[in-house]
Design a protein around this nucleic acid. Sequence first.
DNA 1: ACCGCGATTCCCATCCAATGAGAGTCGTGT
DNA 2: ACACGACTCTCATTGGATGGGAATCGCGGT
Lengths: 250, 250
Amino acid sequence: MANSSSGDSVTDRLVRVLETFTPTRTVQTAAEIGRRAGLPGSSAHRIVGELVESGLLERDGDRRIRIGMRLWELATRSSQALRLRQAAMPAMERVQARVREHTQLAILEQDEALFLERLSGPGSGSNVTRIAGRLPLHASSSGLVLLAFGDRELQDRILTGALPPLTRETITDPVALRRKLAEVRALGHAVARGFIETVATGVAVPVRDETGTVAAALSVVLRRDDPVEPALVELHTGKREIERALGFRG
Amino acid sequence: MANSSSGDSVTDRLVRVLETFTPTRTVQTAAEIGRRAGLPGSSAHRIVGELVESGLLERDGDRRIRIGMRLWELATRSSQALRLRQAAMPAMERVQARVREHTQLAILEQDEALFLERLSGPGSGSNVTRIAGRLPLHASSSGLVLLAFGDRELQDRILTGALPPLTRETITDPVALRRKLAEVRALGHAVARGFIETVATGVAVPVRDETGTVAAALSVVLRRDDPVEPALVELHTGKREIERALGFRG
DNA sequence: ACCGCGATTCCCATCCAATGAGAGTCGTGT
DNA sequence: ACACGACTCTCATTGGATGGGAATCGCGGT
């Protein structure tokens, strides 16, 4: 054996190492990382050591590994995420201040909804979303918006794929989902009552960028039986504000 | 030649490639990246290709490369930056709402001040700071706070190193800097008038984490001759709020 | 249309850096 | 004392990374 007996490139390995970190598992030992990334013990230690030396990972008050600030810096300083987020922040703050519930911004990424930002007040209700976390397209209000305004291939891929339920109320039937998407397009917003957590209702609207394509979804998470109309008004105001900041002339 | 004629590891190369991206240069061609990272043309194309395939980089409306959402996601979902930022956001919003000028949060990273977050209102003045951007410790109010409350070795390193001026008013004399640091420790805040831009004054206070160590600096950027006292009051309120969220019991 | 330049892709012989088994050390919990 | 796991170090092996070169593509200039 030499350069990788397992036939994977060095890049693959680095990515696998980074992927062993999740929103809930933020510190691990080198050995744990190795096990999860499927690397032999000694290789894992060597690779982790290199990453620590380069600053992409950090070794804290001894032995445990976490994501390094350097990686955060490299990733943040020039990603679109930041531009969108910056354009959306003022509007999101306003929505959050008026609706007083979780306010979030999501984009489409690899057939899932990726959450770029989330603002929560002290009195906000339940919410499983995390910044840099993901939710399936068919089960979240943000996802439904991104899916409804996404391109044809995306919809086919999702509609023909598995539609795992998160609660008893999640849409799992392709036909029902297609109908729901048509409704979202017609209304210009998505309401997902109890799709993710039975106690919560998500409401989302599309946000268009300067090219007129739907680039993101702006959403709030209400308590299940709160009225959606007041939130919708705020979402639409916020949406327009963000679109203006992005350069979209509707 | 085989595995790197230049004697650098694959990890080094990947980091060098990522480092060619800066806050102002967010899209480049593969060839540009290669030149800046000091890689032979064909190697640069191959490496960039691998990174694109793994999702760490993205190729847009053709040929140009940018940082990938995947990298942002990996970096963001489990870094301390996020925890600190989340703890600080509500307080920062409050400070920004009342002072109505740029409000920022910085930490110490590799002998520089790294800015984690920045909130700006419509009426805010000039400000060179960027999220995930850096400023030298001796020349920014945030940096002065982080330096003043940092450990001995850090101070020695900075005081004996070069102290390049950014404006005519930046402190460049080690003795004067040492005096300034003592003042910052005594007052519990730093004022930097015209150190970075002649037209602006930075004001910063330290933020302690649950262990009692200064983990960050909370700051605002005022117009040069604005009174600092009102801002200081808000900064101190905000600082206490963040410390409480972090679990510091002062 | 033609030319030139740079970006990009493809090919492939070379060969050394990365690899991982193994043995040993350290630290912790029982 | 013992067991177990995390970690470190060494070293022979070798296949994947490397980069020079050639061909192709794309674009702006003339």
